[in-house]
Amino acid sequence: MNNLLIPDSAIVRDVFHENDDTSTFSLQFTDAQKRLEYSFQPGQFNMLSIFGVGEAPISISSSNGSRENFTHTVRHVGSLTRMFAKLKAGDLLGVRGPYGNGWPLKQAHGKNLLIVAGGIGLAPLRPAIYNILEQPALFGKVELLYGSKNPGEMLFRHEYRQWAEQISMLLTVDDASGFDWNHNAGLVTALFDKMQSVPENTVVLSCGPEIMMKHVVKGLLARGFHSGQLYVSLERKMFCGVKKCGRCQVGSKFVCHDGPVFSYDVLENEPAEIIGVLGRE
């Protein structure tokens, strides 16, 4: 029996500083066979280790079309992720995965997509965005609403020009003071009044702080969307990724295995006391 808790080794090939506290790391498995075998779906995550520090679940933020290298976008806010800030090209990491179910992109074929992201929540959505950009014929209209604290904290800014050629984008920030900013100000949900997306034939993908997703869901339901077309990606503490450590349980679901992406109709009838703010109040 393999010890599925032992990670594979990967080398940091490149580090890109997104902003003051977030970096994108391009990784490559040291083992050539593993590089060939490895594949993932947009929305899945890996368990990343720095040996001697610990291990945490981090979403994959690169295109699943490229398998030689893959990227993780990490915000340096926890005991482990703060150590990530010190990593440089050539350093060694442990990687296990991919885990989780990923975004329902196949179900979205032939349909319109509305993507609603907040802060670091754009990272797990970027593989989905690449997937759409690489195969535009498979999808209808695609719209991205993205909000962050301020313009400086927005992720992947250098890619927006290219994205905007194929998908319509609405950006908003809580506070633009000190920045040259000609987009929106306010919460991401305020963009619903400006968006083109309509409920008909649309799949919604959302990731961000859970309280943001709660308001996204509320706002869209009020606009005629139904819960079965809304998908959210949850964050929970995880120590294994394989339904064993028990940390990520949400009601009878394991976020690491049954999620992290859930259709909102799975969550809406579970009590908020048990599963968190996305549950039934």
């Binding site: 808790l5 610990g54 291990e55 120590f239 450590c245 028990g246 940390r247």
Partner: peptide, 26 residues
């Protein structure tokens, strides 16, 4: 109950270590 916590421990010379798991409580 099956939940557990995981942590790494390094030796003082930072040359070797262990990853351990320990029963945890919700």
């Amino acid at each position: 109950c099956f939940c557990y916590n995981v942590y790494d421990k390094l030796d003082l010379g930072l040359e070797s270590g262990v990853r351990q798991r320990e029963w945890d409580s919700c």
